[in-house]
Amino acid sequence: MFTAGINVEKLENELIIRWQFAEIKIPLHEITDVAEDDTYGGKETNAIRIGHPYASTDRILIKTRSQSYLLFTSNKSKIVKVINS
């Protein structure tokens, strides 16, 4: 699925996030939480940031056992739907 420059795909055992030239693979069993972050820069200071942080973008925080990822997107509902499917 392509939205706001971020491509999110869920395979059998991993979540793949592509943005620009980066490809991040997250094993599904490592994901501990998926939530909306309503702050501008994100509450998680050590999170890997993916996307462009414009004032009008939504922020999705994906927490894993070892790392957090903050996705900046204009279509959070589609991305969350892919992650939760």
Rank of each mutant, 00 (worst) to 15 (best):
I26D: 05
K10N: 05
F2D: 12
L71N: 03
G42P: 00
T45V: 13
Q67T: 09
I50V: 06
Y54H: 00
E30F: 08
S66K: 12
G51K: 00
G51N: 02
G5Q: 12
I79V: 15
I26Q: 05
L71T: 01
A47H: 01
A47F: 07
A35Y: 07
I48K: 11
G42C: 06
H52L: 06
N75A: 13
Y54N: 02
S85P: 10
E44Y: 02
T73F: 03
I6R: 04
K78R: 13
L28E: 03
I31E: 01
E30A: 10
I60T: 04
V34Q: 09
E30S: 12
K43S: 10
T39L: 05
I79T: 08
E44M: 07
G42M: 07
T3N: 07
L71M: 01
L70E: 01
V34H: 08
Y40P: 01
K43Q: 08
K63E: 07
R65F: 04
N75V: 09
I16W: 02
Y40H: 09
I62D: 06
N84L: 13
S66T: 14
N75G: 15
F2R: 13
Y69D: 05
K10T: 08
L11S: 08
P27G: 09
S85M: 15
K78Q: 15
R18K: 14
I6P: 01
M1E: 06
P27D: 05
Y69C: 08
I26F: 13
E12N: 11
E30K: 11
Y54K: 00
T32P: 00
T73M: 03
H52K: 02
E9H: 03
G51W: 00
G5W: 14
E12R: 11
K81A: 14
G42D: 04
E9R: 06
W19T: 09
K76Y: 08
M1N: 11
S77Y: 14
I31T: 12
N84D: 14
A4S: 15
A47K: 00
T32G: 08
R49P: 02
N13R: 10
K78W: 06
V8F: 03
R65A: 06
K10Q: 14
F72Y: 11
K81E: 15
D37Q: 12
I26P: 00
Q67H: 12
S68K: 14
E14L: 14
K10R: 15
L15G: 05
H29C: 09
F2H: 09
A35W: 03
N13W: 04
R18S: 08
I48E: 01
S56H: 10
S56K: 14
N7R: 15
S66R: 06
D58V: 04
K78T: 13
W19S: 10
A35M: 03
F21A: 10
I62V: 14
R18W: 01
R59G: 09
R49A: 01
R65E: 06
D33H: 14
T45Y: 03
I17E: 04
E9A: 05
I17H: 01
T64Q: 10
N75I: 08
I50R: 02
D37T: 12
I24Q: 07
K63M: 05
I16Y: 09
L70V: 03
R65W: 00
Y40E: 08
I16L: 06
D37F: 15
R59D: 05
I62Q: 11
E23W: 01
S74Y: 08
E12T: 12
L15D: 00
P27A: 04
F72C: 03
K25P: 02
S85T: 14
A22T: 06
K43W: 06
A22F: 15
I83Y: 03
